[in-house]
Write a protein that binds this DNA or RNA. Sequence first.
RNA 1: CGGGGCGUAGUGUAAUGGUAGCACGAGUCCUUUGGGAGGAUUUAGUUCGAGUUCAAAUCUCGGCGCCCCGACCA
Length: 420
Amino acid sequence: MRQSHLFGKTLREPPKDEVAKNAIFLERGGFIYKTMAGVYDYLPLGFRVLEKVNRIIREEMNRIGGQELLLSAFQPKERWMKTGRWSSLADIMYQFRDHSARELGLGATHEEALAEIATRSIFSYRDLPLLVYQIQTKFRDEPRAKSGLMRGREFLMKDLYSFHASESGLEEFYWKADTAYRKIFERCGLQFYVTEASGGTFTKEFTHEYQVLADAGEDWTLYCESCKYAQNKEVSSLKADDECPKCKGKIQIARSIEVGNIFKLGTKFSEAFGLSYSDETGKKLPVWMGSYGIGPGRLMATIVEVSNDEKGIIWPERVAPFRVHLIALPGKEEKSASAVLKAAESLYEGLAKKGVEVLYDDRTEKTAGERFADADLIGIPYRVVISEKTLEKKSVEVKERANPQARLMTTSACIKMLTK
RNA sequence: CGGGGCGUAGUGUAAUGGUAGCACGAGUCCUUUGGGAGGAUUUAGUUCGAGUUCAAAUCUCGGCGCCCCGACCA
């Protein structure tokens, strides 16, 4: 990608109405655009990161047997009347009438939808378990959208729904989902705690939340650094400096961001929709359900919250919008300037040919300082500079965003290193 | 939803009740090029409505919007 053609420009100043780092850096860097409070558009840079995150999620969901689908955001009222959530979620669900006065809503979650659809597909124990997921836009009329992408009124959610013949089948899968979730967050470069949390109205059991310690978070996590035991403050009787109930270590408390949760739903939804199956003896039994959520946008924002410096974002390699930021600095002398540009073009082509994602800063009318500042802000892992200076030494300069030390190396060594 | 703060150009900021200005950005041209460069030129703004006043960005009331704290968060 040539930066001169990139849709979305960087801003020199932080937007005055944003405090959260994720909002400041993502807006300044041209990753996102704010349409309304809690409603953000993903520009090409941001969309690339989002798709990297989504790819990781998809791979791990597919690995545990998930089938991807895509459900509608539009929801008929009748469906929600079956569980009583048309009224119990009325505060948070967008509900309205269309031109013919029919009552509709926008999906805030999709248990009802899938429970209904599954009645056409699940009849026998042979049809179970069933694992389906989507990455889809949710709408929630949040009383207070906040902190950039952290809490939005329109946001993406990966929601997986599982269907099982028995409670033990649900239990078994629940922990498989847990393993998949851990892998997802690890691959996104995050350190996290798995907390025991409230089951809300569904279950008296604990559910589990994946919490990343960060000041921008809305939750408080009580955690033990040595054995990683953790609880959400909402449900915990622990307090700071207590002894860890598992390993006798010291309990600490910190703000945290909930990047995912897993939830046993039991049979509430299947009963509401008549979702049952026949077991081996022909007996009809209700299906056991679970739901498992991750907010990819919030995940992206969380990465920014925990991986940045005063100059900008430091993307972990696996979610970075590009792997390499190539900057050509043509000098004043025409002959060497064209040599620099030629070398940069050829390195750009060379890397592209090997499948390396390169953002090529070909904006030669900008000053070096401005382009370096943009590179720091955007946060691509490897910065490669080609200039008269480096060409004299028959080399290019490579610098990692996370490491201030720049290195000179030959073009072929550079290509070799970046294609690894 | 309660409390607080704030709304001036794309961004950031000025303007005792009296001509809306500056910087950056963006566009064109020229000169520049290793940490946000310089010149010429162009572009673009008072959140909306009502009121007070000879006169409102400025004062009053209301709406809308944005941010923060809290409540809320299947």
